[in-house]
Design a protein around this nucleic acid. Sequence first.
DNA 1: AGTCCAACTGGACCGATGGTCAACTTATCG
DNA 2: CGATAAGTTGACCATCGGTCCAGTTGGACT
Lengths: 190, 190
Amino acid sequence: MAERQERADAARNRAAILRATEDLLRDDTADRVPIEAIAARAGVGKGTVFHRFGNRAGLLRALLERRAEELRARVEDGPPPLGPGAPPRDRLNAFLAATVDLATRNIAVITAYEQAAPDRHAEPVYRFWHEHVRGLVAEARDDLDADLVAHILLGSLHGDLVLHLIRRGESDRLVTTLRQVSDALLGEAP
Amino acid sequence: MAERQERADAARNRAAILRATEDLLRDDTADRVPIEAIAARAGVGKGTVFHRFGNRAGLLRALLERRAEELRARVEDGPPPLGPGAPPRDRLNAFLAATVDLATRNIAVITAYEQAAPDRHAEPVYRFWHEHVRGLVAEARDDLDADLVAHILLGSLHGDLVLHLIRRGESDRLVTTLRQVSDALLGEAP
DNA sequence: AGTCCAACTGGACCGATGGTCAACTTATCG
DNA sequence: CGATAAGTTGACCATCGGTCCAGTTGGACT
């Protein structure tokens, strides 16, 4: 039943491509990074990139998932308040702070990803985040439309807003205000 | 000093182009509408479209601004609670309901516009909406980061969320929940 | 009515880019 | 070592936004 193992050269190329993408998005003198440039930087042919990742959205998705992986682990297994055990209000605030931090540190990936995959509701990372927030909201308040409240809270992570704040060096405002919003919604912790 | 009047043929073409864009976005069997298709439908050359509107974003902007014009007028001069006179809480709720309604009825324009002009913070319509909401929030609560709260509230109008709800025939949930959020934030009206 | 020109028009053309494909190479397994 | 599935490649294709300039025309002014 085991998935056939990825060939060694293929794994090497996958890593090289992801690293090249990160590099090019980091030195974002150019704000539009064509796949061909990524391939060149990684030292592979353009066809290889598409063979590995399907399309532009697939490549960015893989990159973002790697960045989000550590957060997911901390949420599922880590210590409170991010991990299980703390009251939902605290977990929610911790989670929102963590995602804002993640988004801030990876703003280039986020914006490129949003461009390439316009429907976030179909994207695995977003679905996980949303489901987590939805659950916490529902736990704390059963009289709200938790599903929608979760979408609204996560709406603050859209690349344009985060970028707007980063440009002014004020990304911490988002954490503060989001906390005020969630406290107002769920009621302050006792 | 008066602006030189637009020539009659130019005005006719401007109208035809806007109408063609609306038509093609409405019958959105195709979700990507190339400028060339719009030009063909309007019975003009592609060059004319660019001459009139500068670029794709400019065309969509003109269309959206026309749709938003009536709302702007009602906000500035109309009767309360949307217009001046009502308490800020009520004006805010009325305004949010109105924008959700506008976005819902023009979802195709909104999504096309977001694609073409990724930085909403630079866009006139968004700036007006944001400034209005910011002012109302600040009036009701001077201890909040009104600027950011306004961005967060308006974040709910992103095309992907609105479309998601429309597809399920549940766009009214957004009005309800947004009202709950704003009430929780500003405190319920006495 | 006639002249003139700034405004307008159209569509060939260009460059960028995402994605495809068929011929070729190679890691891996028995 | 041979067989073969997996992987690689870059030329090629189609699409599209935007440019440009040669040709056309509305309308102001006489």
